[in-house]
């Protein structure tokens, strides 16, 4: 009897705190998503109204599509580039540690700082990117990166990748540790060139790392908020909005708590799919241990 109780005794403290600050709020948000509520006066139950409205809301759809852009951007850029950086810096030439530290540095920064710095990098008149383009004679490519609705989302993803690529690189470097050096040596003996070694030997062994990194990137892309909030607040006119940001605007600017909650719920449900993939992956790996 006592033995059965032991794990619960250990869990009592953490679980209580967790329930109050995390579990309960999640349930609360689910409830609120079925109401019309301005956050001040009494709320009113409206059934599925918020959700129906959401899918007729062009800005919500736009935010959803922007999340998709983030997702694609993260996956097709931070995975290959992260892998490339990792492969490159995994060669233990003197000084490789210094190179790594410098590339990692953005991960130590707050999004507030990142957003501020990048708005200077992308500033239209004197920002580094445009100045550089003009300097090499590509005046035509100099763009108002943060004010043109057509490109602003890509600019934000670009800024986010500054931090995301090193992150992917860290995960791949760890994955490379587990690549069997003997297999690589064997391939060299067999006369495989660098590309073949990479494609037929290293890549397959990296598979678990790749799966994890992709999932992590997808989850991060769906949660994107800080960079958008700091750099454009979703503007101009919602063109760079993502779900998290649109939820914040609806709930806290427009006083539509119920509507905002319903966005959070949708975002949660979409993310949940990937969370499940991730969790199953982790548990499966464990079974093999």
């Amino acid at each position: 009897m006592r033995k059965k109780l032991t794990p619960y005794l250990f869990l009592a403290g953490p679980l209580t705190l967790y329930s109050i600050w995390v579990i309960y709020p999640i349930f609360r948000t689910f409830l609120v998503s079925f109401t019309r509520w301005d956050g001040m006066t009494k709320s009113r139950f409206v059934g599925w109204e918020n959700f129906v409205r959401l899918f007729n809301d062009r800005y919500f759809i736009l935010s959803l599509l922007n999340n998709l852009k983030w997702m694609i951007g993260f996956v097709i850029l931070s995975i290959p580039l992260g892998l490339l950086f990792a492969m490159l810096m995994d060669q233990k030439y003197p000084g490789h540690k210094v190179y790594k530290s410098l590339v990692y540095l953005p991960m130590a920064l707050s999004f507030v700082v990142i957003g501020q710095i990048w708005s200077w990098v992308l500033e239209p008149s004197g920002g580094v990117v445009n100045a550089f383009l003009r300097w090499i004679g590509l005046e035509g490519l100099a763009k108002p990166w943060l004010s043109d609705p057509k490109i602003v989302t890509y600019s934000l993803i670009w800024a986010a990748l500054w931090r995301q690529i090193p992150y992917a690189m860290v995960l791949f470097l760890a994955g490379l540790q587990s690549v069997d050096k003997e297999h690589v040596e064997a391939a060299i003996v067999d006369g495989a060139n660098a590309f073949q070694r990479f494609w037929y030997v290293i890549l397959p062994e990296l598979r678990p790392a790749i799966v994890i990194t992709i999932t992590v990137n997808i989850i991060d892309s769906l949660r994107a908020f800080d960079i958008v909030f700091v750099m454009t607040r979703g503007g101009p006119y919602y063109s760079s909005s993502v779900m998290a940001n649109y939820m914040y605007i609806q709930a806290f600017h427009n006083y539509r708590m119920g509507y905002g909650a319903s966005i959070a719920v949708i975002q949660f449900l979409i993310t949940l799919g990937f969370i499940l993939i991730y969790v199953l992956n982790v548990l499966k790996r464990e079974e093999r241990l």
């Binding site: 500033e123 239209p124 008149s125 108002p144 943060l146 004010s147 043109d148 503007g235 101009p236």
Partner: peptide, 8 residues
């Protein structure tokens, strides 16, 4: 007549 890129 307006400042270009005013949304920035």
């Amino acid at each position: 007549y307006l400042l270009p890129n005013h949304t920035a």
